[in-house]
């Protein structure tokens, strides 16, 4: 339904004119934003920031000033309870700069000059089947959440297929046999084999609402190609024959999926008023925004060839 509304919007906008206006938008209230995750074999990592007034400055300084340092962040797996260590970008261990740069989305050369902090555990590493609770204490308020790392789900197979009449470009394809008994939610990420970090395609999250228990084929685009000028304009979004990529396919919980589903709906509806104004739900209790999510990934390598 949302895509139909967007199509109507598109056609109306085609015949309309647009101008910037100044208008009063009441109701701003500063909130804490928690962006935390844990995945199999990795320590929990939590970023804290605040919301900004819609009309507040939007330069890099304003963005960075929003990050919160000095909070107490505690993660427990039921056995071990650990207060996370605050590690800042100006004191990163050697060799971790590129990973941190990808995490924050800031080039390495800029990142190392900034005092940007994340909370990381040195005592807990994600394990399949465990549930992890999170407690954040900031400005006298306490926020809590919990997430689980579910048993992973592997793809049946991966393949590459040229698109249409092209022999050189095509999407990555996968076959998945979904479990009948559970409601499953997934995340798809990809990287070239030589890259350090994974990238997210157009909408990396999906669940089995429409194919519970089915074996089916599906395709994903190549997010690395959009900024790659070696790709012809008309073939951005495809993989090229000969590419070797790693697919990270992760299982996540239903509440966490609910956050990401609504997040991507908001991102792609562009806040248009044809859609009901929707705030993104959170699995955090206490009035903060954001998500605390556990990932259970599997990895596969795909060589793009016929």
């Amino acid at each position: 339904m949302k895509s139909i509304i967007n199509l109507i919007l598109l056609s109306i906008v085609l015949f309309s004119c647009t101008k910037e206006v100044q208008i009063d938008i009441p109701g701003y209230k500063e909130n804490l934003v928690i962006d935390g995750s844990i995945e199999t074999g990795q320590p929990p990592i939590v970023l804290l920031s605040t919301t900004n007034n819609i009309y507040s400055p939007t330069n890099l300084d304003a963005y960075l000033e929003g990050f919160i340092s000095g909070a107490t962040v505690i993660v427990s797996d039921g056995t071990i309870t650990d207060t996370l260590t605050e590690i800042c970008t100006d004191e990163l261990p050697a060799g971790t700069e590129e990973i941190a740069a990808a995490f924050f989305g800031i080039p390495v050369e800029q990142l190392v000059q900034l005092h940007l902090c994340a909370y990381i555990s040195t005592n807990i590493v994600g394990e399949v089947g465990k549930t992890y609770s999170l407690k954040v204490i900031h400005d006298g308020k306490t926020y809590t959440s919990s997430t689980s790392i579910y048993p992973p789900k592997s793809l049946d197979s991966l393949f590459w297929k040229p698109q249409g009449t092209s022999t050189e470009f095509g999407f990555s394809w996968a076959i998945l046999s979904d479990n009948t008994s559970t409601t499953d939610s997934y995340k798809w990420e990809t990287k070239y084999i030589s890259d350090l970090t994974f990238n997210k395609p157009f909408n990396p999250f999906f669940n089995d609402k429409f194919f519970n228990g089915l074996t089916f084929e599906f395709a994903y685009d190549n997010p690395m190609s959009y900024d790659d000028e070696t790709f012809p304009e008309d073939f951005r979004g495809y993989y090229r024959v000969g590419d070797t990529v790693v697919i990270k396919f992760s299982k996540i919980g239903p509440k966490e999926y609910n956050f990401f589903e609504k997040k991507y709906n908001q991102l792609y509806s562009g806040g248009n008023p044809f859609a009901t104004p929707t705030n993104i739900p959170t699995n955090i209790v206490g009035g903060a925004f954001g998500v605390w999510v556990g990932y259970s990934p599997t990895y596969d390598t795909l060589i793009c060839k016929l």
Binding site: I23, I25, P26, G27, Y28, K29, E30, N31, V33, D35, S49, T50, T51, N52, N53, I54, Y63, G66, F104, G105, K263, Q266, L267, G271, P277, I280, F289, G290, V291
Partner: peptide, 14 residues
């Protein structure tokens, strides 16, 4: 209309 914005995983959200 959105009264505030925030960032999650490098995405700007309202």
């Amino acid at each position: 209309l959105p009264s505030s914005w925030y960032v999650q995983e490098q995405s700007l959200l309202f």
